[in-house]
Nucleic acid binder design. Structure first.
Lengths: 222, 222
DNA sequence: TACGCATGTGACCTTTGTATGACCATACAA
DNA sequence: TTGTATGGTCATACAAAGGTCACATGCGTA
């Protein structure tokens, strides 16, 4: 997820823009309607991109820009009213990356933001990976690769591997695995775990040895 | 001067919106409170932009949209009541550019209108494409090609494919697909998704295999 | 070494999930 | 009106996956 900060005192416009980014599903959207709230957010979070109105109650967009630049080089887009060339000049001086002149379409703002992030939409949602011992697991794609080779896993195998990889190096006993993979309500035997560990190891081929048996303890990966 | 047509049967709302545009000074505002008056205006004038309520006495907004599209590619904004997803669907089919859900602010409507007007011809015809496995989807035209061959899809098939392609490689479970394609209010069964996946695959012919079933997970494309 | 216990393994049957085609209701166009 | 396209539901058929068992193997300890 990309963390985005949107600061705009016009509530309707703020909702419109924030809603547009939220609807895309790959943004963590944080909003502020005045300068102080914005500065507080800047202090607390690390943003990947910021969209700032200039005219704000309290500290203005330039102040927020400076605060952001104090901690990162993330792209900053200014929103400005028509015909305010002075502001545009000043904005570039203190490190803005883009300008949008109001009124603008959220679609165009979104497109510009993507360009600034220089990532495609697909890439934005593709970047989550858990890796370990040459095994890569892509939670969103539900894909697993071992040594660059795609591996086909049954659902239980996949979730079992996921739980193990999410707890890399940590021993999980059979009861815990049953809870995490099968759900707490499941009343099967712990031999079920063994059985699926076996299937998982087999599916992983030579990479199956990454899953270690801890006698009397359970299983762990790495 | 920009010639704008505003059609709305609620007199108060019509005055409000028309007044807002008039106050900006750069619009020639024409209004109609029912379908027949609107059609007459469409016949007589060439508008640069139109704002249409859907529910109207006489011919509805869709009729007027068709009449407009019969003579120009001017931007068309529909006004619709909340929770009327069917209308939105239908509107896009017959060539609407934007939607405003009531209640809305004249200011935002004005902003959207300006944004629509400021699109250059190039932008309008610029081909936005989502591509994947030999399938190309043109969101603006609602067209789909597979292997260079144009494919005719039913609306639900199209939107299903669009959602999948917008999330290329990412597994979407049936609930998520129901939310994204059918809308969050829809209370149908998962089997509906399967059914439409099947129809979509069939429509795509040999390219249908690009849609992968992830057992226990849902569907993904690529 | 021998024993008991823990784990690995393959076979088996059961359960679940998905694909598919038929069917009906609806909306729209001719 | 009739015919056509679409959308949603259902029943059925199948294939995939899951769970259990019996037995084999391996480990740690007395």
């Amino acid at each position: 997820m990309v963390k985005i900060l949107i600061v705009e005192d016009n509530e309707e416009l703020l909702d419109l823009v924030a809603g547009y980014f939220k609807s895309k599903g790959s943004f963590d959207v944080f909003t502020a309607a005045d300068g102080n709230a914005a500065l507080k957010l800047v202090d607390e979070k690390d943003f990947d991109i910021a969209i700032l109105d200039i005219m704000l109650p309290g500290p203005d967009g330039f102040e927020i820009c400076k605060a952001l630049r104090g901690k990162s080089r993330c792209p900053i887009v200014f929103l400005t009213a028509l015909g305010n060339e002075d502001n545009i000049l000043k904005g570039y001086e203190i490190g803005a990356d883009e300008y949008m002149v109001k009124p603008f379409s959220p679609k165009v703002l979104y497109a510009k933001s993507l360009a600034l992030l220089s990532r495609t939409e697909a890439e934005l949602t593709k970047e989550v990976v858990i890796e370990c011992s040459g095994i890569r697991l892509y939670p969103l794609r539900m894909d697993v690769e071992a040594g660059g080779q795609k591996i086909k896993l049954a659902p239980k195998e996949y979730f079992l591997l996921k739980v193990l990889m999410e707890n890399k190096g940590i021993v999980l006993d059979r009861d815990r695995l049953l809870d995490l993979v099968w759900g707490v309500g499941f009343d099967g035997t712990d031999r079920t775990v063994d059985s699926h560990i076996k299937k998982l190891r087999k599916s992983l081929g030579s990479y199956g040895s990454a899953i270690k048996t801890v006698i009397g303890g359970g299983y762990k990966i790495c």
